[in-house]
Simulated assay, not measured.
Amino acid sequence: MNAALDLARARFNMIEQQIRPWDVLDLEILALLDEVKREEFVPAEHRALAFVDMQIPLAGSAAEAIESGQCMLEPKVEARIVQDVHLKRNEKVLEVGAGSGYMAALMGRRAERVISLEIEPRLVQMARGNLARAGIANVEVREADGSAGLAAEGPFDVIVLSGSVAEVPQAILAQLKVGGRLAAIVGEEPVMRATFVTRASEAGWTTSQPWDTAAPRLRNFPEPSRFRF
């Protein structure tokens, strides 16, 4: 069996064995996962892990990558976020945490425009290169600290925090349009919740936390104070 067939089978197995059982049932999302080649967004030294149900380091060892937040989330988590945030073709998206550019690539295929903020210069270059090779032209990766969002270019239809936070800053929620949605992974180890916030009106918000997961921290977001005795 040639390499292309091996990759196609591995991708098919990822979709059918990991992603569908995680309630990712939107046929357009499943087709998108087949079209956007995940292995092309994985560092060369970890390409054999592209379809494995695990977080993949983007820098250094696995422990270092998770500690610094520099890793790709599990395929099922990425797919479920993209499905559950309900992107539309005419929408503008802000992502915080570009990583390798894979999540931005998926969202770029669903939305009109994606701006992805990445604080780590090496990952900015990685994401830009990966997106260019994939031919995705409606995603812009900027080197920036995304912990305050990007108010100057808001409001946004969708905001995705591609990592975990202790809580979602109100300053970022304020950058949503009315009707806009935010996705984040919120909480502390070992229990974190996928959190979806919709701006129902200028001063009204609805929140759901439909599933549990865990993810490395995004840098520079506020942490709750911890008392030490």
Rank of each mutant, 00 (worst) to 15 (best):
L176T: 07
D145K: 12
S162E: 14
S208T: 15
S147E: 08
P210E: 04
A174D: 13
N220Q: 02
R199N: 03
L161A: 03
D212N: 13
Q209D: 03
A183K: 11
A214P: 00
G154H: 06
E188N: 05
A194N: 10
V158Q: 06
G154S: 03
A148R: 15
Q209I: 01
V168G: 08
A166P: 05
L218K: 09
T207E: 09
V191A: 10
A166G: 03
Q175S: 05
V160L: 14
S162D: 14
A183Q: 11
D212R: 13
L176H: 02
T213Y: 05
T198P: 09
E202I: 10
D145I: 05
F221A: 12
E202L: 15
D212P: 05
G163M: 04
A200C: 06
G179D: 05
A144M: 14
E188W: 01
D212K: 15
P169M: 05
L173F: 00
E167F: 13
R181S: 14
P216C: 00
L176Q: 06
L176S: 10
V160E: 01
F221M: 01
P190Q: 07
T207I: 14
A148W: 13
A214E: 10
V178P: 15
L161F: 06
P216D: 07
S201N: 03
A151I: 02
P216S: 01
A200K: 11
P210A: 06
R217L: 12
Q209M: 14
L150Q: 07
A148D: 13
A184H: 05
E167L: 13
L182Q: 11
G154V: 02
A151V: 05
I159V: 15
D157W: 01
P155D: 06
G204H: 13
V158A: 10
I172D: 10
D212T: 14
D212V: 06
R193T: 12
R199D: 04
F156N: 08
D145M: 12
R181L: 14
G204L: 12
A194K: 00
I185K: 01
R199W: 10
E167N: 05
F156L: 03
A215N: 00
V191G: 01
G180W: 07
